[in-house]
Structure formats: structure tokens, C-alpha cells
């Protein structure tokens, strides 16, 4: 059974898209067939990490949702980002970055049945093992849909009070949606924090397993939004911790 993994954070700027891209790449590197759907229709951005030129995107998630194309024609093979190359495959289903398209989806919304159907077709036709869903921050209707469909939900937070409060709401709402697997990832953690203690504290506060604590990395800042960190710095502490996250959520 292919697994749908939704990645969410209560606020923006937690490194959600970045973490999604890295985890997906690491899984593909291990020989898995992986897809990423950018459902952050309001502020799409993950295509930048995969150096996907917007002019190349003839068909996007928006087009599928309006019945203009099949979902698999919105899937772009970005396996070239995997280093070193393996049998694994990586596909990206981007959102349209055209402002008209964005406004239209926000206005009319879309139906969960359609989305679920689309994911099913996608996983079947591309024989995917994992499908990552990059969501929009906050808890709007579309985001709730992604959480409802997911087999595994990863909630990313930074160690600060606003994220702590928002995460508490997300965790509770997701529990009510009966998501089968839920994990927390604490991101951008300064070195002065005792990482293991933080993990224990977060886990006990939310009564939810912590899949990993990712240290703050200056190198990640310099890489900014071009390229996949864990592919370029495979031995970095951040990449190693991401590897552990993969083992925890798939193991």
C-alpha cells in the first residue's frame, strides 16, 4: 500500500517545504518511488528547490482540480536531484504560480473526493511507494483535507512560544480527524538547546512521538532555496537526523 505523508506546520517559515523536499529525496535515494504534491496553492514554492522552471509547467495541480488535465500529466520527473543516482524516482506535482489560477482555486475551493481520487490515480499510474503532501500553513479547509487524507502526518514546529501554542491546536484537530500516524519534528533548533531533552519535553507536552530534532544550520541558510540540502551535505548533522526521521516514520 502506498503511503500518503502530509507535512504541516501551524505557521509559515518553519522550513516545511524544505523538510518535505529533503525527506522525499532521501527516501528516493533509498530506491523508493516518491511523489510530492504542492497543495500550498496560496503560496507555492517547493518547485524552486527542484530548479523547476515555471515556464516548463504546462499542467499543474490547479489544472487537474479543474478537470483540465489528468493528474499524472501534472507530475514532473525531478529524479535528477537525487545524489547519488539510484533506482528511486522522484516526481513533483506543482501548484500553479499564476495569480489568476491561485485566486480561482481560493474562490471556488475543491472537493476532497476529487483530491483523494487524484492521489489514488497518481500513486497507481506512477507506481509510487510514498506520496508527500506539502500543505499551506494554518488550518484552512484545504489543509484539513490533506490531513484527513494522510496516513502519516508530520507536524513541523520551531522551538518558540507561538509555534508551541499553534501546534497544540493542530495536534488536537488532527486527532479528531483520526490520522493513523502522527509525528512532530522540531526544526531550526539552536545548538545551546539540549536536543534530547527538548525532544522528551515536546513529546510529553503533546503526547505525540517526536520523529526528530533538526539543528539550526548556517549552511542551510547559505544554500537558501536552491538545491536539496541533504543531497549536497550528506554528512551534515541535519542530514543525518533527517535520515533518522525517515527510519522512524517508515520503519
Amino acid at each position: 500500500m502506498p503511503k500518503i505523508i502530509a507535512i504541516h506546520s501551524f505557521r509559515g517559515g518553519t522550513g516545511k517545504s524544505n523538510t518535505t523536499a529533503n525527506l522525499a529525496c532521501l527516501l528516493a535515494q533509498k530506491g523508493q518511488r516518491v511523489g510530492i504534491v504542492d497543495t500550498d496553492i496560496q503560496s507555492p514554492g517547493i518547485h524552486v528547490l527542484f530548479n523547476l522552471d515555471p515556464r516548463e509547467i504546462s499542467c499543474s495541480l490547479n489544472d487537474f482540480l479543474w478537470g483540465k488535465c489528468e493528474i499524472e500529466s501534472a507530475a514532473y520527473d525531478v529524479s535528477k536531484m537525487i545524489e547519488p543516482q539510484t533506482d528511486g524516482k522522484l516526481f513533483l506535482i506543482p501548484s500553479s504560480i499564476r495569480t489568476g489560477d491561485i485566486a480561482r482555486v481560493l474562490h471556488y475551493g475543491y472537493d476532497i473526493n476529487l483530491l483523494k481520487e487524484g492521489y489514488q490515480k497518481l500513486t497507481e499510474r506512477l507506481s509510487l511507494d510514498y506520496l508527500f503532501i506539502d500543505t499551506h500553513p494554518g488550518l484552512n479547509e484545504e489543509t484539513l483535507m490533506s490531513i484527513a487524507i494522510a496516513d502519516i502526518l508530520l507536524i513541523i514546529l520551531r522551538p518558540d512560544q507561538q509555534d508551541y501554542q499553534g501546534t497544540a491546536v493542530t495536534v488536537e484537530v488532527s486527532r479528531q480527524l483520526e490520522v493513523p500516524g502522527m509525528f512532530l519534528i522540531v526544526n531550526k533548533v539552536p545548538d545551546v538547546f539540549a536536543h534530547e531533552e527538548l525532544a522528551v519535553k515536546v513529546a510529553s507536552t503533546y503526547q505525540c512521538e517526536v520523529a526528530g530534532v533538526l539543528p539550526h544550520a548556517d549552511e542551510m541558510m547559505t544554500l537558501a532555496s536552491s538545491g536539496i540540502f541533504s543531497m549536497q551535505y550528506p554528512d551534515h548533522a541535519v542530514s543525518r537526523e533527517m535520515d533518522k526521521i525517515i527510519q522512524r516514520i517508515t520503519g
Binding site: Y164, Q165, A168, E172, F193, E197, K201, V202
Partner: peptide, 14 residues
Amino acid sequence: LQIKIDREKQIADV
């Protein structure tokens, strides 16, 4: 380092 959560607010938001 404390994770302070305003439970009342959380319940209301949920």
C-alpha cells in the same frame, strides 16, 4: 525552556 500552552485558548481554537 518551557513549553507553555494556554489550554483554554487551545480548546476554544479547536
